[in-house]
Design a protein around this nucleic acid. Structure first.
Lengths: 134, 134
DNA sequence: TTGAAATCCGACTTCAGGAGTCCGATATTG
DNA sequence: CAATATCGGACTCCTGAAGTCGGATTTCAA
């Protein structure tokens, strides 16, 4: 309940690891998985998503792997979540899927007030960068 | 992902409804469920939990129902979530269940940094009261 | 005193989504 | 050509959210 997914956690751990080393250094999914004792296949999937989004740069083949694709100071936790989950962290479904997703949308009286919480939450995640978690 | 549960939503809606009427006024779970088009049995369970916690006062029997048990100005969203979910809204499992709940606890490098987010989140939910969502 | 209306509470079902796994394809290097 | 990567879809497993049901208890009023 109300938790970040393992995928997001693994992604943040991996990004942090890369951010702690010289920019451009390449790491394989396998070594990252071993280092942090994380399921390799799952981490691999996460890194692939981050690669598709351009946050990390991937190179295939022998001696391939992943390297940071942009400045960790400009890389927010919000962005990372957004990429991995394919949506922003929203505290209510209707904020994501719209009116038709909620059977009580019209009679709901807390949507607007909770919007304030949502906005503050967005600010929270937007403020925190990968660089800051080092 | 990262959403409040329906139970919490229903609870907040019901509490808000009561807070908008004169203190002490009694509402049945049935009429609240009808008013907001919410599953009766589920809302009933939520109200029972809130009653056990003393947040609302319940009276059984004919002409019974629920009434606000304390000042909505002192009733925080954090408290309501805590009562209904039986735990605070935590962004990582290890914050709730401790080291043994997470297989990578020792190698996890993001627990501390995310603690900052967690604290800010707590403040957010602590700041918002039922009175404010009117 | 009896029936209706309400809370109370546990047990149950259903289902979606999170977590993890597997496999084959493709790319790259030596 | 073989070894080592990423790539990406399909799959299983399982937990927990959401909702339902049934029966017990309490209370009021006719």
């Amino acid at each position: 309940m109300f938790q970040l997914s393992k995928k997001v956690e693994y992604g943040l751990i991996a990004l942090r690891h890369m951010a702690m080393h010289p920019m451009g250094q390449v790491f394989t999914a396998k070594e990252l998985a071993r280092e942090y004792d994380v399921p390799y296949e799952l981490l691999a999937k996460v890194l692939q998503k981050l690669a598709r989004a351009g946050i990390v740069h991937s190179t295939q083949g022998v001696r391939g792997g992943y390297a940071l694709g942009s400045d960790p100071r400009a890389m927010t936790v919000a962005t990372v979540i957004q990429i991995i989950e394919e949506e922003k962290p929203m505290i209510a479904e209707c904020y994501v899927e719209g009116p038709d997703s909620c059977s009580i949308f019209d009679s709901c009286t807390i949507r607007k007030p909770l919007g304030k919480v949502q906005r503050d939450l967005n600010i929270l995640f937007d403020k925190m960068t990968i660089h800051q978690i080092i």
